[in-house]
Design a protein around this nucleic acid. Structure first.
Length: 370
DNA sequence: ATCCCAATAT
DNA sequence: AATATTGGGA
């Protein structure tokens, strides 16, 4: 009897265990399924968040745009009123001519509006840029930040271009000036050459674009001046930090007159900085301290390269109210570059002025050309 | 930034 | 002697 019972229970147990296992398996599969769904959901949520970010980016610019749009419309109305009496409106004509047909007078407002809108739509850049920024931000790495910045530097920021256009519009009602992209290739592509070397302290600037534009007016002789602009070396950006390092090294080496470019460079320990760059900077520095021997009193604003270098940049950045703008290294334009370096004037070698005998700078022009 | 030159090192 | 590197200056 006892045995039989035992068998039974054993039997039951042996049945029970598989059942449990199968149950568990079922549960597991359910859970698995669930987790799969969860991950999918997660994915969607992420995607959604991405979109939300973009939307926010748009939203930031929205008030601005509305404002400007309003201005534009008001301007239009104003002009309409002004020209109401006259039979033709040269202004309108001009920019209606962009469209194929010439509209009749009666529907002026509508057509104006339409044209306006159309133009706005066509200026997709206005919108695309912030988005671009977002993207850069996502794949955050120092470089991309820099690129973003430099782009702004060259373009003067969205705002400025934007306003410029509005200006054109409101101003004399001339034909709309279509956006012209600075044409400069994307920094990313361009930068391949420099790559790693170029570290944080430099801020690559795409010279092509601005150069072209500025050159356009100048070269009347038809001669193309841009030499091998394509492969030109990146301009070294002497950020306040960088300059500070420079001055620091300078002091350690006993003043501007005694320190040599190479020593300075080594002391600065800045990756990617070349002797020539330091040399050039040193040269300017020497000139500067020679010019105003007691710069210590100059407080903040007395810096040679500050203004022109950072004026634009700061403006461009500020224009963008919302932009987080990477901290990076640029050092705000706010900080005076020279500020505390006033003491840098090592008077010791100042008065020296050398015998200048060095070399009489004969420098024969090498008249070898026939 | 680039060019030229002189001094110096290899 | 030829060449490379470096600093100074323009």
């Amino acid at each position: 009897m006892g045995e039989k019972l035992k068998e039974q229970s054993l039997d039951a147990g042996s049945n029970f265990v598989p059942k449990i296992i199968s149950d568990i398996l079922t549960e597991v599969s359910v859970i698995d399924d669930f987790s799969q769904k969860l991950s999918k959901l997660n994915f969607y949520v992420n995607a959604f968040e991405e979109e939300l970010k973009k939307i926010n980016a748009f939203k930031r610019e929205l008030p601005n745009c509305m404002h400007l749009l309003k201005d534009a419309i008001e301007k239009l109305k104003e002009e309409e009123l002004q020209l109401k009496g006259k039979e033709v409106w040269p202004v309108m004509e001009q920019f209606i001519s962009l469209k194929s047909d010439s509209n009749e007078i009666g529907r002026d407002k509508r057509s104006g509006d339409f044209s306006d809108k159309k133009n706005w739509m066509s200026s997709a850049q206005l919108w695309s840029t912030p988005v671009l920024y977002e993207n850069d931000f996502d794949s955050k790495n120092q470089d991309s930040g820099l690129h973003f910045r430099s782009r702004y530097e060259e373009e003067g920021g969205i705002g400025s271009e934007y306003q410029q256009q509005v200006c054109n519009f409101g101003n004399r009602g001339g034909a709309f000036v279509p956006f012209k992209k600075p044409s400069g290739g994307e920094m990313k592509g361009n930068n391949g050459i420099v790559s790693v070397q170029d570290l944080p302290l430099s801020s690559p600037v795409d010279e092509m674009g601005s150069y072209d534009l500025s050159m356009k007016g100048k070269c009347g002789n038809g001669r193309v001046q841009q030499q091998q602009l394509a492969q030109r070396k990146q301009r070294r950006c002497w950020s306040p930090e960088l300059h500070k390092k420079f001055v620091n090294a300078l002091h350690q080496l006993g003043g501007a007159q005694t320190a040599t470019p190479r020593q300075i460079r080594e002391l600065m320990k800045v990756d990617g900085l070349t002797n020539d760059e330091v040399k050039s900077h040193l040269q300017k520095y020497r000139l500067h301290i020679q010019k105003l021997p007691s710069s210590s009193a100059g407080v903040s604003s007395s810096s040679w390269f500050t203004q022109e270098q950072y004026g634009d940049l700061s403006k461009a950045i500020i224009t963008h109210s919302g932009s987080p703008q990477g901290p990076l290294n640029h050092g705000g334009p706010t900080k005076g570059v020279w500020v505390n370096d006033g003491d840098s004037i090592e008077d010791d070698e100042d008065e020296k002025s050398e015998s200048h005998s060095k070399k009489s700078r004969l420098q024969q022009p090498v008249e070898d050309h026939v």
